[in-house]
Amino acid sequence: MRWLRQRLSSRWQRWIDARIPAARQHSLNLKSIFIFPSIFGWGYLVMCVCLFLLGTNYQNNLMLFLCYFLAALMLVNLFTSYQNMAALKITSDPIKPVFAGQPATLVLEVASQNTKHPDINGLLNAHWLAESGVVHTDLDDGQWQLRLPYFTEQRGIVSLPRVTVFSNYPLGLFKCWSHLDFDQTLVIYPKLIPAPVRLESVSGEGDAQTEQTGYDDFYSLRKYELGEPLQRVAWKHVAKGGDWVSKAFSQQQSESGYLCLADGKNIETALSQLAYQIDNLTDKAVQFGLRLPDKVVPPASGAEHRHVCLSLLAVYPDEDRMPR
C-alpha cells in the first residue's frame, strides 16, 4: 500500500509539473484552474434532483419550474466562478532569508489580467499544498495581497512547496482552485546562539582587535578641543570646577580579522554561535572575514557580505548548494 501511494504521488507530481510549470508569476487560465462542486453544492444538486422527482411524480409544473430555475442558477454560478478566477494574475515577491525557528513570509501580489476593467470579487484563500493553515484576502475591499507564513525548524536551503489558491465565489456552490509553484528557494540561516566575538588575524595568530574612537562604550576623559560637539563634554566634571574635558568612547574594530568555526563543540552549536557573531559584527559595521575548513570569505562588511557568510553556514558542509 505504501509503494502504491508513493507511485501515485510521483505520477501526480509529474503531471502537475507539466500542467502548471514553476514560475514567479502565474496568469490563471483553463489549463491551470480546477473547479468542482463544494459540499454545499452537492447538497444543492441533490435538492434539485429531489424537486425534479417530486415534480414529475405529482405532475406539479410549479415544482418543476423551481427545479429548472435552481439548476440554471447553478450553471450560471459555475461560469461566474471560473471567470472570476481566470481573471487573476498572481506574482510572488522574493522571499527573505530567516534564522532557524523564525517564520518566513511569502508575499503574493494579486492583480487583474484585464487592467482596463479589473473586475475581480470575492474572498481569495491560500495555503501550502498538503497543509491546512489558510490565509485570505477580500478582493472586494481592494486588499490584493496574500501573506503566507512558512515555519522553519532547521538550517538549510529548501524549495518551497506549491501554494493552493481557491475561491468559493459567488454563492459557495463550487470550489475553484489552482496549485501554483512560484519557483522560490528559502535560505534558512542557523539559529542564533549568543557567543563572544573572537576574530583571528589575517595570519591566523591571536585576536585582531583594536580600540578606536566610536560611540559604543565609555573609554576615558580627554582635553576638550574647540569645535567638538557639546554633548561630549563631561558636564559633571566641569560643574565641580574642573577643566573642560570630553568623553571618549570606544568600539572594537577588526583589522581584517576572520571568524572561524570553533573546534570541540557540537557542530550545530558552533554554527549557531558563528551566525550570532556574523550578525553582531554586521550591525556594528565591522569588517570581517569567514574561514571554514573548505571555504574562505575575504574580509568585507555590509548586508550582502552578511548574506554570503550566513548562507555558507546554512549549507555547511555542502558549500556546492549555495544559492545563486
Rank of each mutant, 00 (worst) to 15 (best):
I95L: 00
V308Y: 13
N60S: 12
L66V: 03
P118K: 07
E131N: 14
P323H: 06
V46W: 11
M47G: 06
W42A: 09
E255Q: 14
L78S: 03
Q83M: 02
G214Q: 05
L173A: 02
P299L: 08
L64G: 05
L312F: 08
Q13R: 14
L28V: 00
G133M: 11
Q209T: 09
G214F: 01
P299G: 02
E225C: 09
E211M: 12
Y150F: 15
T91M: 04
V187Q: 02
V76S: 08
G156L: 03
C260Q: 15
D119H: 13
T56L: 15
Y276H: 13
Y150K: 09
R24K: 07
F218V: 04
N121F: 04
A23N: 04
A248M: 04
F79G: 13
I16Q: 10
L8C: 01
S201E: 02
Q253F: 04
D263I: 02
I16T: 11
N114W: 01
R155N: 14
I20K: 04
H117F: 08
W15M: 06
G227R: 11
F182S: 08
D320G: 03
P21Y: 01
V245T: 01
T164D: 02
A248H: 15
G227Q: 10
W144V: 00
Q6Y: 12
H117Q: 12
D207Q: 12
L290F: 09
L148P: 03
F69M: 14
M74E: 05
Q231C: 07
L28Y: 02
E211V: 13
L261W: 04
R155E: 11
N266E: 15
G41N: 02
G241N: 09
A111N: 09
L261H: 02
Q113M: 07
L259E: 06
M47F: 14
R19M: 00
R306A: 11
D17A: 05
D263W: 06
S272W: 08
T210E: 12
P161E: 04
S256N: 15
C260P: 06
H305I: 03
P293W: 07
I35T: 11
E211K: 13
I193L: 13
W244H: 10
E255F: 04
D294Q: 15
L70I: 06
R162P: 00
L54P: 05
G172Q: 09
S167V: 11
D93L: 14
R5C: 00
N84T: 09
G204T: 13
S178A: 14
T210R: 15
P196E: 08
K236Y: 10
Q231R: 15
L8N: 08
Y58K: 07
Q277A: 05
M322C: 04
C309G: 08
G257K: 05
D93G: 00
A300T: 05
L51P: 10
R11E: 11
Q83H: 03
I188H: 05
T56F: 14
G204M: 05
K175T: 15
W244C: 08
W244I: 12
N125A: 01
L108F: 03
F52W: 15
Q209I: 14
G264M: 12
L124R: 01
G122D: 02
A22E: 04
T80H: 13
K284D: 13
Y224M: 08
K31M: 00
Q231A: 03
L108I: 07
A111P: 08
F166E: 05
P323M: 00
T105V: 13
V110E: 10
N29Q: 00
L75V: 14
E304F: 12
T164Y: 02
Q83N: 07
P37F: 03
V158M: 00
K240R: 15
L271H: 03
G214I: 01
G156I: 08
